[in-house]
Each structure stands twice: as structure tokens, then as C-alpha cells.
Simulated assay, not measured.
Amino acid sequence: MMERFSNPVLLKELKLRFRSFKSFSGLMFYLAVLCLFVTGFLLIYTQFSGTGFFKPSDSFTMFAGLSVIQMGLVMFITPGLTAGAISTEREKQTLNILLTTTQSSSQIIIGKLLSSVAFLVLMLLAGLPLYSLVFLFGGVSPSQLITIFLFYLVTLIAIGSIGIMFSTITKKTIVSMIATYGAMIFLGGITAFLFFVGLSMEQMFMYSGTPQPNATPFSPISYFWASINPGALMITILYPEMASSLESVVGVSIPVWVSYLIFYVLITAFCLFIAIRKLRANMKTNR
């Protein structure tokens, strides 16, 4: 029974990844960036206060800044771990051997993805001692920390799936990494730009005709761009009042996290489906 759920690809990838010096040097760099931010934040705020005290409001500011930096590092590191999962095997000419084993395409793809996700989860857990300083000074509830980490988990799995898909359908690792980082730029930056453009166009249409002082704004397209943007969701998690402001601006009462979760779950399922279907199809065309 256990053999049906065992994944040799996952076990091999975990051993190779966690024994690699590059992995732990990357983890050291990740923690060094967070430690520099926390140390600098504490020194600056205690010096500017003039009393040496650290208020709970300042602690929440540190928590918000730490969360944003950690999210940026996750979005920067995840494509590098997953975009070359299959293309590297193809470039090393070991993919043919891997496909001749008894492992199915789904086991290979899921094993590659979960090994990367496991290392990223380790990075998130390694940063928990820094978050403990926030609870030491107060100002942040445990529910906010749990929500932030769940948000990280959903996002990194989706980004990892996108990287695995591009790594499967492209033959070169550099092309896969460019495509994955391009997708991150779209989700993180271009969606924010389209959100503000949509709001501006909606306001132009509203005030171009007869003025209606009691008119309720309704912009589902702008809401969609905001709901799939990781930065927008993080802002609504850190500052719940911003969720109410967004609802009043776009006229959609659905919470942002609901649409975000649905969209990224669908993206994850779609990317994994394409990767599994195209894994052996590409091999047939390359022979």
C-alpha cells in the first residue's frame, strides 16, 4: 500500500537538494537579508524615538516590511528552483533514462515540484525566529502571521507550477527561466498597472456622461487584476481597512483572498496538467 504513494523522484530530489552546498548558501543569503532588515529597523527606530523604546505600532511596521521583503525573496527564488527542473535533465541527457523507469509522468512532475516546495518551506520556517521578535514587542496577532504564511504557501506552489510547466515545454533552461520570471513580472507588476488603468478608464466613463452623484462604481475587470496581484492581497491582509476601500472603489463585495485562492489553484492545476501531458510528448518528438 505504501509503495503506491512512494515517489522515488521526490526522495532523490530531496537528498540532492538538501545535501547541496548551493541550497544552504542560498538559505544563508536569505536569512542574512532578513537579519539585516530587522537589525537595521530596530536600530533606526530606537535611535529616532529618542527614548530607546519600541512601540507596538512600530513592531507592526517591522512585521509588514519583513513580510513584503520575504514575499519578494520567495517570488525571486522560486523560479530559479523550478524553471530548470525538467530542462536541466534534458540538457544533461538524463531525461531519457528517467522516462524509461517505472515512474509515471505525474510522479516525475509532482516529485520535482514538491522537492522545490519543501526547500522553500524550509526557508520560510527558518525565518520564524525573526518573526518571534515581532511577538516580543507586540502589535501583531498570531492569526495574521498564519494567514501570511498560508498566502506564501499558495503563491510559491503556483509559481513553482508555472516554472515546472515552462521547464517542460521548453528545451533550454535559460528560456524557461526568462518565461517564468516574465510571468512573475506580469502577476506582480503588470496586473497592478492594469488595475490603475482600469480604474482610470472607469472613472472617465462615469464622468463623461450625465453626472450621477449617487452612482455606485462597478469595475469587475479592475477587481480581477487586483485579486490576482500578490501585493494587493498582502496589503489587504496586513491592513484590513484597505479591503473595504478596494470594495468601495471597484464595487465588488467578494473578498480578494477568495478570488486569489481560486485563481492560483486553477493556475496550479492547469500548469501541472500541461507539464504532465507534454513531458513524454516532447520526448517523442525529440527522438
Rank of each mutant, 00 (worst) to 15 (best):
C35L: 15
L246P: 10
L133C: 07
Y131F: 15
M75D: 00
F193H: 04
F48P: 02
F273E: 09
S143N: 10
L199M: 10
P240Q: 01
L125R: 04
W257E: 11
T102F: 10
M206P: 03
V74T: 15
E247A: 13
R90F: 09
F5I: 12
I254C: 03
S104H: 02
M177D: 11
M62W: 07
N214F: 14
K15H: 14
S143T: 11
G182Y: 08
I169M: 03
M75N: 01
N7E: 01
A226W: 01
V33H: 05
I254A: 08
E13P: 01
T170I: 05
G163A: 07
A281G: 13
S248K: 15
T168E: 02
M206N: 12
L120V: 01
V154S: 04
T46D: 02
V249A: 15
P56M: 02
S23R: 00
I157G: 02
V175F: 13
L66H: 10
L279W: 04
T100V: 06
L34Y: 07
M123V: 08
F63K: 03
I69F: 07
I262M: 11
V197Y: 00
I86Y: 03
S59Y: 05
F193D: 00
S208W: 10
F119C: 03
Q144N: 14
G111V: 07
A281N: 13
S104D: 07
L98T: 09
I221H: 01
A32P: 09
R287D: 12
L194V: 00
T216V: 14
A158H: 03
A158K: 02
L43E: 08
T100S: 09
F149M: 11
S132I: 11
V140Y: 11
M234V: 00
L99D: 06
Y45S: 12
L81T: 05
M71N: 06
F205P: 01
N214S: 14
P211C: 06
L120Q: 06
S219G: 13
T100Q: 13
L66R: 08
M62S: 11
T94V: 12
I157M: 09
K112N: 13
S253Q: 13
P240Y: 02
M234I: 02
F76A: 12
E202G: 11
T155K: 04
S222E: 09
Q47P: 01
F149N: 08
L194W: 00
T168L: 04
S208D: 12
I262C: 07
R280S: 10
P56E: 01
L99C: 05
R90P: 07
S132Y: 14
A243N: 11
I77G: 02
K172C: 00
F137C: 10
T61M: 13
T168A: 07
S87W: 03
T102I: 09
V74L: 15
G198N: 08
N282V: 03
P240N: 02
I178D: 06
Q70W: 11
S67W: 04
S106I: 10
V252I: 15
R4T: 14
Y239A: 11
I267F: 01
G198L: 02
A126H: 07
V68E: 06
G139C: 13
G209T: 02
L246R: 09
L43P: 05
I159A: 04
